[in-house]
Simulated assay, not measured.
Amino acid sequence: MTTIIGLVAAFCTTISFLPQAIKTIQTKDTSGISLSMYSLFTFGTILWFTYGIMSNSVPVYLANGITLILALIILIYKVRYK
Rank of each mutant, 00 (worst) to 15 (best):
F49K: 09
A10V: 02
A21S: 03
V79D: 09
I5W: 15
T13W: 13
F43Y: 09
T30F: 03
R80G: 11
S36H: 11
Q20W: 00
K78V: 09
L72N: 12
L68R: 02
I33T: 12
Y77Q: 14
L47D: 00
N56W: 14
I73P: 00
A9G: 15
T27R: 01
T27Q: 03
V79M: 15
S34F: 08
G32A: 09
K82Q: 12
F17M: 13
T30Q: 03
L62K: 04
T13K: 08
W48G: 00
M1G: 15
I74S: 06
I73F: 08
I69P: 05
T3C: 10
I76V: 15
G65D: 06
T3W: 09
F17S: 10
S16F: 04
S36K: 10
S39N: 05
V8F: 14
V8K: 05
A21I: 01
T45C: 01
S55A: 14
K82V: 00
I5K: 15
I74Y: 02
F11I: 04
T45Q: 01
T3P: 12
T45D: 04
I15M: 09
C12R: 06
N64F: 02
I73K: 07
F43E: 00
C12F: 10
V60R: 13
I76Y: 15
T30Y: 03
T45V: 03
I69K: 01
L7E: 04
K82M: 11
I46W: 04
V79L: 15
S39A: 12
F17I: 10
M1T: 06
R80M: 15
F49M: 11
V79A: 14
Y61L: 14
I15A: 14
T30G: 11
D29H: 00
I73G: 07
S34V: 00
A9W: 13
G65W: 04
I5E: 12
T14G: 09
T14C: 08
L72I: 14
L35R: 10
I4E: 02
R80C: 13
C12P: 12
S16K: 11
I25H: 06
G52H: 08
F11N: 04
S34A: 06
T67G: 10
Y77K: 14
T14M: 04
T24R: 01
Y77I: 13
I22W: 08
L68N: 02
I76S: 06
I4H: 03
W48S: 00
L75R: 03
L7T: 03
Q20D: 00
A9H: 13
T2E: 15
I33H: 05
A9C: 12
P59R: 03
M1H: 12
A21L: 01
F43W: 06
K82I: 11
T30E: 14
L62E: 07
A63I: 00
L75P: 06
V79C: 14
I53D: 10
F17Y: 14
I22F: 08
L70C: 05
T30H: 07
T24A: 14
T27V: 04
K23R: 11
I76C: 13
T30L: 02
M37Y: 12
Y81N: 14
T50I: 11
R80W: 15
V58C: 11
T3F: 14
T42S: 05
I25S: 05
